[in-house]
């Protein structure tokens, strides 16, 4: 079937043949490999995108169900040039190691700050509870995001 949706503000049309996920659609059909697949079952958050204003695991959304929706991926939250304050803070705090979790964490954190400009440490942890990072132990991620709230630059 043909699916029409808006991705990062751009209307796109894609043919969905298999019972594929929104994640497959983004990565394989739309050329947006920033969203990652690490578990294909909603456990790791590597595939996080914002779907009609809601943070979702795109591996759990059927591509066909995204018809008519508006999707924001990591590519969409990154400014044309440079970095979003969340990205900037993560960069400086050493919150990126292998980086495979990073796009999902960026999207989840951008979503958090859009709703809550000054999240507490506990709110940061709750917001990222669905994102697995195997490298950093999360310390640098928490320090980075605490800094974003404190300086209020976003």
């Amino acid at each position: 079937m043909i699916v029409e949706l808006t991705v990062n503000g751009v209307p796109v049309t894609a043919r969905v043949t298999n019972p594929g996920s929104l994640l497959d659609l983004l990565r394989d059909e739309l050329g947006l490999p920033g969203s990652k697949n690490a578990c294909e079952q909603g456990e790791c958050g590597s595939c996080s995108v914002i779907l009609d204003g809601e943070l979702v695991c795109s591996c759990l959304v059927m591509a066909a169900d995204a018809a008519g929706s508006s999707v924001t991926t990591v590519e969409g939250v990154s400014p044309d040039d440079g970095l979003h304050p969340v990205q900037e803070a993560m960069h400086h705090a050493g919150a990126v190691q292998c980086g495979f979790c990073t796009p999902g964490i960026v999207v989840a954190a951008v979503d958090l700050f859009a709703r809550n400009a000054h999240p507490s440490s506990n709110e940061i942890k709750d917001a990222l509870a669905g994102n697995i990072c195997r490298c950093t132990g999360y310390g640098a991620i928490i320090r980075a995001l605490e800094g974003v709230g404190a300086t209020d630059e976003h």
């Binding site: 490999p33 920033g34 970095l83 990126v96 980086g99």
Partner: peptide, 12 residues
């Protein structure tokens, strides 16, 4: 700063 930090953060 890590040289690969920006592309990793931007999903690139």
């Amino acid at each position: 700063l890590r040289p690969d930090g920006v592309p990793k953060l931007r999903g690139e």
